Simulated assay, not measured.
Amino acid sequence: MENLPDWAILLGNFGFPTLVAVYLLIRFEKRIEHLTDAIRELERSTHQQNGGKR
């Protein structure tokens, strides 16, 4: 391993975990957006059921 440049070692050590973290953040962002939409819809429906009272 002495022949590998320093950047290749850094990429091997940090590249994969960084890629996994970015992938998970993108997937969770979509799920959070869906949850936010569901909460807003629930708020609208409860608001309508209560006759517009908060």
Rank of each mutant, 00 (worst) to 15 (best):
R31H: 02
L11T: 14
F16Y: 09
D37C: 03
G51S: 07
I9K: 07
D37S: 10
E41C: 03
T18F: 07
N13P: 02
F14R: 04
G12K: 07
Q48A: 12
N13R: 01
H34P: 08
I26G: 12
D6R: 11
R54P: 01
L19K: 10
Y23L: 15
K53Y: 00
E43Q: 14
T36K: 01
T18W: 02
Y23V: 14
R54I: 04
I26T: 11
A38D: 11
N50V: 00
H34N: 15
N3E: 15
E41T: 10
W7I: 15
P17R: 08
I32F: 09
Y23S: 15
S45Y: 00
L42H: 04
F16I: 12
R27A: 09
L24F: 02
P17K: 05
F14C: 02
L10V: 08
N3T: 15
G51W: 03
L4K: 15
Q48M: 09
P5M: 03
G52L: 00
Q48R: 12
H47V: 06
P5H: 05
V20D: 09
E33H: 04
L10Q: 13
S45V: 12
L25S: 09
K30V: 13
G52F: 00
P17D: 00
L11E: 08
E41G: 07
N3P: 12
T36E: 05
Q49L: 10
A38K: 01
E41M: 07
G15P: 11
V22S: 05
E33S: 06
E2I: 08
E41S: 06
